[in-house]
Design a binder for these strands. Structure first.
Lengths: 348, 348
DNA sequence: TTGTACGCGTTATCAA
DNA sequence: TTGATAACGCGTACAA
């Protein structure tokens, strides 16, 4: 019933079909498709024409079987923040699409006893071209070892520990936190509360150090009671906020190590009948979705998650690994919104 | 340098290795691995032992090449809500892991002109076992047609349009919205504002109808000015809330078609110096992450997204398709939190 | 109940 | 610059 007898869209075209139509061998088609050198312009054009005419797409499985590596990239995560994961994934997907790769996603339990086994199994059955590791997985020894043993390359995003010879994408968490604290000091704040991040996550320590260094540079003392632990969760932010706000000498600003905890501070402040930002300035980190969904909207530090994961994909699929840098650092950005203002109480 | 000469972990075991170790043919190994019948208990045990000893995992690419279908399931999405996508993905991943499948994620532009081409290309290069379609993609004709033409099975999650013979997972949006409005009426509210969802998404109309029916059942009039359009985005929620709150005769409660928009109502109410829930009750839909991150926390309707996507995977990988139902409907649940209360103003 | 031999669609080796 | 042909690891008629 098709209007054209010659164009049979029903069956998928294979490399042989393309070769026949272009009047060349399959190897030549393979060369063109894979952008290899040593093909004359004429034949290349002929093959390209045939590929388009037949709307040929190389079979992913045949490729994976024939070559050692595939066009599949793995994204391994175990992160409670939906916004963080969604952002990362979007960035990775965009770059994958450009390059003709596909993304296989895997949700692992970073605390699970069978972590190593799960990674091992994944690598055995699907020779992934490469793997993207997000925190806290990028610091899990079991994962790292399984990857190394299987000789699968990987990129770590925002890792905590330095790992010799491993590819990494990150921002300068130290500098970013320092910038934020300096901004708060610039507004006139002198007593600034700080809520730490999860001690198991990479950036937590760097952010804390940055905060403290900013205090030092401004000649302000570091008050231990103003620095409380947190775990990146909303719940932990509530508890941390309780501690800080029940202090006899309350801070005029609180800098939380991520937006979820900052949102918790906002909620807790309301329960204390404190107005934000008049009575209490609040700053977060990440510029995740919640930052714009709470009221007042959060002043925060934007981490370019999409760009980071896109960069990770690029590093995995690059041709020459010899002269390429192992570590890439992207720029952060201070995003000032309504949750921060000069303190109502004037200081000398 | 290995301590055991016999156990060479470096190379991946293949089916031949297992067959040799178990003293059977590769076909028998294949039978055991794929849980086929007609294998004696003794040989099955022997093969199982060999599989574990060699930590054998069948090569995904070889399988995909040899058989028509693969162990890959596609998840296609174009959804602005990070929480929704993250939840869906988690549910699908969990079920996939149990069944030994992997998830290939693809982010498509539902409005894009090359939608059909993108889906077509994906299906040509990787014969996915099946595909999960999320709104609004599950109603995109281009996607549906590409899938049908490639003879790839799919499950639609919460679709708008009925499609004969297509598999579907959903909740009863009509009933859910009706329950919520009935709950608000039960609290004593008589003027209830409603913010619609994106007209292109399946559930929007059903939710609106449910709301209106609940009003009718309670003998309350439907006031057109209390029903405003929205698009599921935070921004659209802000605009909708503006309209409702600037009414000369303001509603005492607002029911938004999702949590993002409900969060926007909360923020807008604060700007109007309205206290929630004393001056204005607010209800959302989905029970996404934001519902618990805002203050007061949102009363909402929980949609079991994880269960829905897990169910979708199950439907895709089931053996017998003949006697299986094409549509499955899961239960919703009203989650009452602090954002709703009886109205301050008493009605006769 | 078990095994043999072939094919799936690519990439890669080597010769032309 | 090209091409013939052998892997790649598994599923599956078909035979035993």
């Amino acid at each position: 019933m098709s209007r054209e007898g010659t164009t049979d869209q029903q069956k998928r075209a294979k490399i042989d079909d393309v070769a026949r139509r272009a009047g060349v061998s399959i190897k030549t088609v393979s060369r063109v498709v894979n952008h290899e050198a040593n093909v004359s312009e004429a034949t290349r054009a002929a093959v390209t024409e045939a590929v388009q005419a037949l709307s040929y797409r190389p079979n992913m499985f045949a490729r994976g079987l024939a070559s050692e590596r595939s066009f599949l990239i793995g994204l391994l995560y175990d992160n409670p923040s939906a916004g963080y994961v969604a952002g990362l994934q979007l960035g990775a997907l965009a770059r994958c699409r450009e390059a003709g790769y596909h993304l296989v996603v895997e949700h692992l339990d970073a605390e699970g006893s069978n972590l190593a086994q799960a990674v091992h199994a994944l690598l055995m059955e699907s020779r992934l071209h490469g793997v993207i590791l997000t925190p806290p997985l990028c610091d899990a020894p079991a994962v790292l070892e399984a990857l190394t043993r299987a000789n699968t390359r990987f990129v770590r995003i925002a890792p905590e520990q330095y790992l010799s010879g491993a590819m990494t994408v990150s921002i300068d968490d130290h500098k970013a936190a320092q910038d934020m604290t300096a901004y708060l000091i610039g507004l006139g704040h002198r007593r600034i509360g700080f809520i730490k991040g999860h001690p198991g996550h990479g950036a937590s320590h760097a952010r804390f150090d940055g905060h403290r260094d900013a205090l030092g540079k401004a000649g302000l003392p570091f008050a231990p009671e103003l620095c409380v632990p947190g775990f990146f969760s909303y719940q932990s932010g509530m508890e941390a906020a309780e501690k800080l706000l029940s202090l006899k000498k309350r801070p005029t600003a609180i800098f939380a190590s991520n937006d979820d905890m900052a949102a918790a501070v906002l909620a807790t402040a309301q329960r204390y009948h404190l107005k934000t930002p008049e009575d209490l300035s609040v700053a977060g980190f990440d510029d995740s979705l919640v930052a714009q969904v709470v009221w007042p909207r959060l002043t925060t530090c934007r981490q370019p998650i999409k760009e980071m994961s896109a960069e990770a994909v690029s590093m995995l699929i690059q041709k020459a690994f010899d002269d390429a840098p192992l570590e890439r650092r992207l720029e952060h950005e201070l995003v000032v919104r309504e949750s921060t203002a000069p303190p109502a109480t004037a200081y000398p």
